[in-house]
Amino acid sequence: MKTVFKRTPTLKDCPTHYCPGCGHGIAHRLIAETIDELGIRGRTIGIAPVGCAVLAYDYLDVDMIEVAHGRAPAVATGMKRTNPDKIIFSYQGDGDLAAIGTAEIIHAAHRAEQLTVIFINNAVFGMTGGQMAPTTLLGQVTATTPKGRNAAGEGYPLQVSEILALLPGAIYVERCALSGAAGVRKTKKAIKHAFELQVEAAEGLSLVEVLSPCPTYWRMTPAKAMEWIEKEMVKVFPLGRLKG
């Protein structure tokens, strides 16, 4: 019998704590595959955020650190500057990167830190119970926007990747989506490119924004959630290469 798919070694052989239909598991797999394909497991250090992916080190078999909410780019800076030979990546959600950690991501990019950032945008705060994120769509119902997000008072969805793409220190910014097989393949390609740039010591920050489903707090089936990314999210967060 021919093996057409197998678990990559850097992805641990264990069930995750993620909800059915959640995108984190897929994103973890893509990172693990990238690390193994590039042969960098022995020199990679990952950063887990505060959010649903806080336990990412339970699934990714590389040296990892768990950091304060939003501070991953600062921690990554401290690691990379003192260990230029290591490959440092952070894995951050939309609350982590686009709300509480805005200053840290902007300035890490601003300083052109040689880092790889995987930014998971699921338009909601997952771990704390489905509250509004900066990336929540207008009209989207969350635990803290019971009538749907209203621009007046709650602001518009924040397009952090577009902001980062303006900075000379950000050398590669791409937005992908985990909806459908083609989307996953494209996301994998982008993630791999973002790691490759660091391996090649390209001078700047690489970021891949990943639109990722959260069926639980979108109150949808996993299939509907995938559809919602393609129909609604991409209108506000258009896919494609923003920089590099």
Partner: peptide
């Protein structure tokens, strides 16, 4: 040496460097 964007960032850079 890094002049950080804030004291929050500075202590977290310390956190990162120390962890290695």
């Amino acid at each position: 040496f890094i002049q950080s964007e804030s004291e929050l960032a500075a202590i977290n850079m310390v956190f990162g460097a120390s962890a290695t």
